[in-house]
Amino acid sequence: LAEHVVADSVLVPGVALVGGGPGDPDLITVRGRRLLAAADVVIADRLGPRDLLAELPPHVEVIDAAKIPYGRFMAQEAINQALIDHARAGKAVVRLKGGDPFVFGRGMEEAEALAAAGIPCTVVPGISSSISVPGAAGIPVTHRGVAHEFTVVSGHVAPDDPRSLVDWSALATLRGTLVLLMAVEKIGAIAAALIAHGRPADTPVAIVQEGTTAAQRRVDATLDTVGEVAKAEGVRPPAVIVIGAVVAVGPDQQP
């Protein structure tokens, strides 16, 4: 197996699962950038910092994970197999993922597949969009006297879907901040569920689309209006949705 050489001369064998951060190429970690610079093969997600790929030398093979031929494999199985195949071929492989590999990134599935194949795996944490995107839009997920906790939730499954693992009734009783990822499509249903279980309808909500990038925009609403506002404003993924009093905190939000 190939070894990645990082600046401190530590050799990292096998595959590196690198969290690329929320989108701005400057927000990848130093270690992640070093490993990316040493790669022979980069298998990249759509939500990773794709501007970094343009900086790679011509010999580096860049593979879009969304375009890997699946054949008899499911998408994730095909990605796992591609990581294994390239590592076994002696290539220095980086799996470039958006945000952090283990925050709704299926990074552990890839790490488990590599371990089962006997291939060493190095995990490089990344800056999660769950905190960095609100911050880039001027929203603190916690604030003294306002919110003492924040909860990060995947919103890709509707509250009434039998596949949902989220206790929305419990979330509705919390006083802190809710941060929803992958929730643009289901935000109307999610908001309705939270209101039905007791969250006040006038709770402030902010949607931050394409956070930390040049295309970033913020759309504000309340819990009872956010579904319609998101449609009217043409909000599209990727977006982070923040629910709670912290949305109204900050110099730009003062009356």
Rank of each mutant, 00 (worst) to 15 (best):
I195F: 12
V226Y: 04
V30N: 11
L56N: 00
P120V: 08
V12T: 10
D45L: 00
Q216W: 06
G98M: 00
P25E: 05
T151F: 05
D64M: 11
F102I: 02
G48C: 08
A115D: 10
S154A: 07
R88D: 04
L35I: 09
E185M: 08
V242S: 01
V226E: 03
P204D: 04
V226S: 02
V94Q: 04
H59L: 09
F150G: 07
A239M: 13
H148S: 15
V240M: 07
D64I: 02
D40P: 11
P49M: 00
V124H: 02
T177F: 07
D26E: 15
E112R: 15
P22S: 08
T29R: 04
A147W: 05
H59F: 09
R175S: 15
I127A: 13
V42M: 01
S164P: 08
Q209G: 06
P120Y: 14
P255H: 04
H197C: 10
A2L: 06
A245C: 12
A201V: 01
L165S: 13
P162H: 08
V205Y: 02
P25W: 10
L165N: 13
G234I: 03
A137L: 09
T213N: 13
V152C: 01
R236F: 02
A170M: 12
L36A: 06
P140F: 12
Q81D: 11
A215Q: 15
A39F: 05
E233S: 10
R144I: 09
K91C: 14
V246P: 05
A239R: 01
D252E: 14
A239P: 09
